[in-house]
């Protein structure tokens, strides 16, 4: 086999390989995840974040508008400090409410943003005033049991 046949076969091989890599980047993975360096970071504090993880989606009206950048504990107030990176093309008002929600019954947890009516928009580094913590199943069950226990004597009479 002469030189040009080798070149052709190797060129074809490389082309198919690059095509496969492009397929993995664009169709299997989401290259949009690459631009995680852009956008602005806002801070939200929660009493309890439940099972929220770094890189979990930030959604507003069900649309992904950002990602959870980092999670930490404030050593003085014992609140969870969650940094949210919001994509640059979305703006939210100053009185936006952040809550930790679950997609589906057993699905992943995400941060939901509900924009308020304040005409001033959130800027990078701002802290959200109102937050709603994750629902913890154990707490819900114990609340339910307490309320049941409270109403049972009334029924017994």
């Amino acid at each position: 086999m002469n030189r040009s046949r080798f070149d052709f076969a190797v060129g074809l091989f490389v082309a198919i390989g690059l095509l496969a890599m492009a397929f993995m980047a664009l169709k299997v993975g989401n290259l949009a995840g690459f631009d995680s360096g852009t956008g602005y970071v806002i801070e939200a504090r929660f009493d309890n974040i439940g099972g929220l993880k770094v890189r979990a989606p930030v959604k507003s009206a069900g649309v992904v508008v950002g990602r959870v950048e980092s999670i930490g504990l404030d050593a003085e107030t014992y609140e969870a400090r969650v940094l949210l990176r919001v994509y640059p093309n979305y703006r939210f008002s100053k009185d936006t409410i952040a809550s930790i929600l679950t997609s589906g019954l057993l699905g992943e947890q995400y941060v939901g943003l509900e924009s308020g009516g304040d005409p001033v928009y959130l800027a990078a580094g701002d802290r959200l005033g109102k937050t709603q913590s994750a629902m913890i199943l154990e707490k819900l069950i114990s609340q339910f049991l307490f309320s049941k226990a409270a109403e049972t004597p009334a029924k017994a009479q």
């Binding site: 091989f13 390989g17 095509l19 496969a20």
Partner: peptide, 15 residues
């Protein structure tokens, strides 16, 4: 040189 291309092709055909 060949291995990354082959691995990418393997994953792609697998998907």
């Amino acid at each position: 040189f060949s291995m990354p291309f082959l691995a990418a092709i393997f994953s792609t055909t697998g998907v």
